[in-house]
């Protein structure tokens, strides 16, 4: 309960910063992915398509009989597509694109919130350098795992479906390895969030313990 109170107190104190961090994280990650695509392919995007995300979600809910089937389908719905079409062949082929997927942006927003919460809990932390580095590393690894598995870049070589392994393939990871890793996406995502959540709980616990020991210490001894 004391840990929850610490968390509540930290969130109440820092909620504006955390909210801003979440939003910035979600938006900046899209910018980062677009920049990565432009640098990797040495080309500027030449097309943008906006999609009626809300309308499409309503349509999916309306036409999918099972509730269980709905989330994974909505999970693939795009809001915006920015990319490059190669017009040298036929009527043109989209070679690469960034797909802005609202569901993934929400995940990234939550990720940003968690990272901001971690940094809030670590601020004014008086622990020694060793554990602090470990905690920062845990936060970093958790962030990378979640961010990596929520990348939404398409590359026509991957049969033009946005997949998180496209980022790895773009970085030069072998085809077989990328494909083998693809199915591990949800597990890695959960592992990342798990790591971040554990870090948050641990930080809150340590902060609670530090506060208690400070309260218990005799003053002017």
């Amino acid at each position: 309960m004391a840990v929850l109170r610490t968390l509540h107190h930290t969130i109440a104190q820092d909620w504006q910063r955390m909210l801003l961090s979440g939003l910035l994280f979600a938006v900046l990650f899209q910018v980062l992915m677009l920049l990565a695509l432009m640098i990797r392919f040495q080309a500027l995007p030449n097309y943008v398509v906006a999609y009626d995300w809300i309308g499409n979600v309503i349509h999916i809910v309306k036409s999918t009989p099972s509730w269980r089937d709905i989330p994974p389908i909505i999970n693939q719905e795009w809001l915006l597509e920015v990319g490059k079409i190669n017009y040298e062949y036929g009527t043109g082929i989209s070679e690469w694109s960034l797909n802005v997927v609202p569901v993934r942006m929400m995940v990234l927003f939550v990720l940003g919130l968690l990272v901001a919460l971690c940094t809030s809990l670590q601020r004014r932390d008086t622990c020694t350098a060793g554990p602090a580095t470990t905690l920062r590393a845990a936060t970093g690894i958790g962030t990378i795992l979640v961010a990596m598995t929520n990348a939404t870049m398409s590359w026509v070589v991957c049969c033009a479906a946005p997949s998180w392994v496209v980022g790895l393939a773009m970085l030069g990871l072998g085809v077989a390895t990328s494909l083998a890793l693809e199915t591990m996406g949800p597990a890695l995502n959960i592992a990342g969030f798990g790591l971040l959540s554990c870090t948050v709980v641990f930080l809150a616990w340590r902060k609670t313990r530090a506060a208690k020991s400070q309260m218990g210490a005799p003053s002017h001894a």
């Binding site: 190669n86 040298e88 082929i93 070679e95 590359w155 026509v156 070589v157 072998g174 085809v175």
Partner: peptide, 17 residues
Amino acid sequence: PTSDYVLKNQSPAVGAA
């Protein structure tokens, strides 16, 4: 065997280019 050649993932347009 797959170990004896390097398989790369390329789109038709990129492969053709």
